[in-house]
């Protein structure tokens, strides 16, 4: 799975899912039958993984190849109108559409301007502007810029490369621990920090 790329099961394209199922079946066969050589499982698995790498590489390079392998997203709702034809083509029932929308916390289908059935089977929905959640931009409020928080201490272990990435050093870390009356990194269960210097710390005593 690592060679094929980091994907969750639900995010897999149909071709990737088929390859994953085939790999698990091929790998299991020599393990179940002791009379079958391991090579009978290993070689087909390797060939499938290599083909998958080549196919995914081809999909990255060519849009035509990508649409041939993965298909195209379908516009299920366009300008608030449900397309019965697209629903039929994708074998999606109205109940399933409502279910997918409810999972996205959309209870009223009339608030949806566009709904797209993605190639991995998930549904993306865009609401009418009047129904969209309020953001600071709508209210003309200047929002504070937040950095990306990364883990600096994980279960007592200092992750130095994350510390370096943030532009901090061990002295800064000791200072932060001292400010919270902690002596060692071992006393910390989790500590995260971002580029702005904002720190979240959970000591072992807190957990």
């Amino acid at each position: 799975m690592r060679i094929m790329g980091k994907r969750q099961l639900g995010e897999m394209e149909p071709a990737e899912f088929v390859v994953a199922v085939l790999i698990s079946d091929l790998a299991a066969h020599p393990l179940q039958d002791i009379g079958t050589p391991l090579l009978y499982g290993l070689i087909p698995v390797m060939i499938l993984v290599l083909c998958q790498v080549l196919i995914s590489g081809g999909m990255m390079k060519s849009l035509k190849f990508r649409s041939l392998i993965c298909g195209k997203p379908s516009l299920i709702i366009e300008n608030g109108k449900i397309s019965a034809l697209e629903l039929q083509k994708n074998r999606v029932t109205l109940d399933e559409l409502s279910e997918q929308l409810r999972k996205k916390d959309i209870l009223d289908i009339s608030t949806v301007k566009y709904a797209v059935l993605e190639t991995d089977g998930s549904l993306s929905a865009i609401l009418y502007p009047a129904e969209s959640p309020l953001t600071p931009k709508h209210m003309n409020i200047q929002a504070d810029d937040v950095g990306y928080p990364v883990i600096v201490i994980n279960d007592g272990h200092i992750i130095e490369h994350n510390l370096k990435k943030l532009g901090f050093n061990l002295q800064w870390l000791e200072k932060q621990l001292g400010a919270r009356k902690l002596k060692h990194a071992d006393d910390v269960f989790l500590m995260t920090a971002d580029t702005s210097g904002k720190v979240y710390l959970a000591s072992r005593e807190d957990t």
């Binding site: 070689i43 390797m46 060939i47 290599l50 083909c51 790498v53 080549l54 590489g57 081809g58």
Partner: peptide, 19 residues
């Protein structure tokens, strides 16, 4: 591209070894 090239080479190697 490097990953795809290695995959292609490995595939050719596997097919050759099988032959």
């Amino acid at each position: 591209m490097k990953k795809e090239f290695i995959a292609l080479l490995s595939l050719i190697l596997l097919i050759s070894v099988s032959m």
